[in-house]
Every structure is written in structure tokens, then in C-alpha cells.
Amino acid sequence: MMAPVGLAAVVEAAVRAVCDPEYPDLTIAELGIFESVRVDGAGGAHIELVPTVLACPALRTIEQDVVDAALGAGAASAEVVFLTSPRWSPARIDATTRAHLGREYTVAIRGLDGRIICPVCGGREAHQRAAFGPALCRETWWCDDCRNPVEVVREAVGRP
């Protein structure tokens, strides 16, 4: 059975627009956490998400928000699956969102050379100070040019 015309699109838009609990002005789509949504013939929404870190303590909150968004958009039921494949990586974050993370949160993403451009001063002299920061998905760095702390988004588990 096919989903009612339009419902899938409405549910997908609502789910994509769910905001991240720790970046309240960024959506799970912008952060690359959203993977897919399928609406079945009974109007049930089946949502797949890719967590930044499997042990992320915000997963239950994100799940609840996504279920609420899908039901609010008219889905008859909603279920969320957190995928282990594909793995999340900072590459899933688009350029506009990267700029926003840098500007608003002083959060940077590694370049291909493993270094970062300081979001505060644009310098290339930032160095890692701790493998983790306040969140499991971020490292703590320090910029020697402008002397600001910078948090850097971690690659998937297995890479420091």
C-alpha cells in the first residue's frame, strides 16, 4: 500500500526540522544526523538516524523529539532506528552549517590535512589539548594566535 499523497513529504520536512538538543538553532538534517524516513500504507513513519556518537547521551531526547515531530505532522505512528552504518562523520555537515558552528559556537571541523582554521581569527596555529571536550563528539583545542579555546568535532570512533 502507498502512503497517502503528500504525507511522506510533510513528515520528512517535520523530521528534518527537529533541532539538536545541544545546538538549539541547528537541525538534525543540517548536522547530518538525519538519514531517511519512509511512510508506510498505514501512515506509520519509519525514521533512520545516524548518531554522531553511539554513546551520545542526547539520543533518547532526539528520538522523542523526532517521534513527536512525525506524529505532529500527521503520521499514525513513528519509530526511530539509530543506524551503525553508515557511520556519522563531520563530512556529513554542509558548508553553511560549518560556518554557523564556527561563528556561533567556536566549533571547528578538521581539514583534509588534519589541521583546523581557527573560527575566531582564521589562524592555522591551533593545537589539541584534550581528546574530549564537554561533549563526546568534540575535542578541546587552543588557538595560539588569538588565544581562544576552540572545540573541534571528532571523527567517528576509532580516530582520535
Partner: peptide
């Protein structure tokens, strides 16, 4: 716990 200790680390750096 991770949040607060992480914040402390950043603040001590600053």
C-alpha cells in the same frame, strides 16, 4: 559530568 568537567577545563584554559 562530562559537560561540567569539560566546561571547567575550557574555563581554566581561558
Amino acid at each position: 559530568t562530562q559537560d561540567e568537567i569539560g566546561h571547567a577545563h575550557l574555563l581554566y584554559m581561558v
